[in-house]
Simulated scan of single mutants.
Amino acid sequence: MTAVDDGSRAGRGRGHGAPSMADVARLAGVSPQTVSRVANNRTNVEDATRERVLSAMRALGYQPNSAARALATGRFGTIGVISFTLSRYGNVRTLDGIATAARAAGFSINLVGITAPTHQEFRDAFTRLSTQAVDGVVIIESEVLDMRTLRLPPGVPVVLSDGYGGHSYPVVDSDQAAGARLATEHLLDLGHPTVWHVAGPQDSNSARHRHASWRRTLERAGRQVPRVLFGDWTAGSGHLIGGYLAGRPEVSAVFAANDQMALGVIRALHEAGRAVPGDVSVVGFDDMPESAYFWPGLTSIRQDFDRNGQLCVDILLEQIRTRAEAPGETHLVPVELVVRGSSGPWHGRPGRGTLPESS
Rank of each mutant, 00 (worst) to 15 (best):
residue 3 A to R: 03
residue 9 R to D: 05
residue 11 G to Y: 11
residue 14 R to E: 14
residue 16 H to F: 10
residue 17 G to D: 08
residue 18 A to V: 10
residue 21 M to E: 05
residue 35 V to P: 02
residue 37 R to T: 02
residue 44 N to Y: 00
residue 51 E to H: 03
residue 53 V to D: 03
residue 68 A to E: 00
residue 83 S to E: 08
residue 83 S to G: 11
residue 101 A to E: 11
residue 113 G to S: 14
residue 113 G to M: 13
residue 114 I to W: 06
residue 120 Q to S: 15
residue 135 D to N: 01
residue 141 E to M: 15
residue 142 S to Y: 01
residue 144 V to C: 01
residue 145 L to Q: 02
residue 149 T to D: 03
residue 150 L to S: 01
residue 155 G to D: 03
residue 159 V to Q: 02
residue 162 D to T: 07
residue 164 Y to E: 12
residue 168 S to I: 00
residue 174 S to K: 00
residue 178 A to S: 09
residue 180 A to R: 05
residue 184 T to R: 12
residue 193 P to M: 12
residue 210 R to E: 07
residue 210 R to S: 09
residue 229 L to H: 09
residue 232 D to Y: 05
residue 233 W to I: 08
residue 234 T to Q: 09
residue 239 H to P: 00
residue 241 I to K: 03
residue 241 I to C: 01
residue 242 G to W: 12
residue 242 G to R: 05
residue 242 G to A: 10
residue 242 G to Q: 07
residue 247 G to F: 10
residue 252 S to M: 11
residue 258 N to Y: 13
residue 261 M to D: 05
residue 281 S to T: 06
residue 282 V to Q: 03
residue 284 G to Y: 13
residue 287 D to A: 13
residue 287 D to L: 10
residue 291 S to N: 03
residue 292 A to F: 01
residue 298 L to N: 04
residue 302 R to Q: 15
residue 304 D to M: 05
residue 306 D to I: 12
residue 312 C to N: 08
residue 312 C to G: 04
residue 312 C to Q: 05
residue 315 I to L: 15
residue 327 P to A: 08
residue 333 V to S: 02
residue 335 V to A: 00
residue 340 R to T: 09
residue 347 H to Y: 03
residue 348 G to L: 14
residue 358 S to D: 04
